[in-house]
């Protein structure tokens, strides 16, 4: 046997052993391909069924989503319309707000003007009241002066009347004396002569200022212990003065002035004989 033949025999034998071993190992490791094929087919069927179910569900979901999208689009349109209406209302409200702000500003200016006018009028009123009080005081003083002058004039008139009566009496006495002189000259008896005119009493000065101290007023309001009078500083009333309240000839009570205004006064009741009423007379002298 040649060397080449020996080499071929060895190589052939080794390759046969190697291929046999590989085949055995492959066949031993291989599984059942048919079962695997069936299993794969079942898996494919299951996957297809699942995919169909998923496709149906996806289709249903797509339809529901489409309906939902339509519904949302409708709501969107409605909301857009509502938004436009609200924008219009907002613009109207802004215009109204601007209008009312302008009105409020104008009214504020008017109110400020009124306040200034009122303050000016209050100042004017206060000054007018002061002037009125001064004028009332002047009037009272002038009235008192007029009363004094009237009394003096009355006194003078009375004195003049008495002087006239004295003059007339003196003239009568003169005529009587002339008659007596004539009778004496003729030797006749002299009759007793008495003047016809009686000598009146001499006029005496009236009591001056008897009325000036007597301030009279009326009770205008009555409270349990307080009384308001219709006279004030314009009539000469001052705080601390005492008034006597009468009703006809009846004494009611005494009043002590505690607060005085221009044309009214407040007083507390003292020596209460009866309850004063509105219209009672209050005077500083009984």
């Amino acid at each position: 046997m040649s060397t080449f033949t020996k080499v071929l025999v060895v190589l052939l034998s080794l390759s046969c052993i190697f291929l046999s071993g590989a085949t055995v190992s492959y066949v031993a490791k291989s599984n059942d391909a048919v079962k695997e094929n069936e299993q794969l087919n079942n898996d494919i069927k299951n996957i297809k069924a699942q995919s169909n179910i998923d496709a149906r569900a996806a289709n249903e979901k797509r339809i529901a989503d489409a309906l939902e999208i339509k519904k949302l689009q409708t709501e969107k349109v409605a909301l857009e319309n509502e938004n436009q209406n609200m924008m219009i209302d907002l613009k109207n409200a802004q215009r109204a707000a601007i209008k009312w702000e302008d009105r409020s500003l104008s009214w504020e200016g008017v109110v400020i003007g009124f306040e200034q006018t009122i303050s000016d009028m209050q100042k004017s009123l206060i000054s007018t009241r002061d002037l009125l009080a001064k004028e009332q005081k002047k009037s009272i003083k002038a009235s008192n002066d007029l009363n004094d002058i009237t009394i003096a004039l009355d006194e003078h008139i009375v004195m003049l009347e008495s002087l006239k009566a004295e003059k007339k009496r003196l003239l009568e006495q003169k005529a009587m004396l002339e008659k007596q002189v004539d009778a004496l000259a003729s030797g006749k008896k002299i009759p007793a002569v008495t003047p016809v005119t009686q000598v009146p009493d001499m006029a005496t000065p009236a009591e001056t200022n008897s009325y000036s101290n007597a301030i009279q007023g009326l009770v205008t309001e009555v409270a349990p212990n307080l009384v308001s009078l219709s006279i004030g500083t314009a009539d000469g009333v001052s705080t601390g003065m005492k008034f006597h309240v009468t009703r006809g000839d009846r004494f009611i009570c005494d009043l002590l002035v505690t607060d005085v205004d221009v044309d009214k006064a407040a007083a507390i009741i003292e020596l209460k004989n009866a309850s004063p009423k509105i219209g009672d007379t209050a005077s500083t002298e009984l």
């Binding site: 025999v9 060895v10 052939l12 034998s13 046969c16 291929l19 085949t23």
Partner: peptide, 30 residues
């Protein structure tokens, strides 16, 4: 030379056993 003969015989037997194994396996599974 007997060694080569034995080697050939071994190879042939291995191939034969492999064929038997593959045959049994195919029939039993497929």
């Amino acid at each position: 030379n007997n060694v080569y003969t034995a080697l050939l015989a071994c190879a042939v037997s291995v191939v034969f056993l492999t064929a038997i194994f593959v045959t049994i396996k195919c029939i039993s599974e497929y």
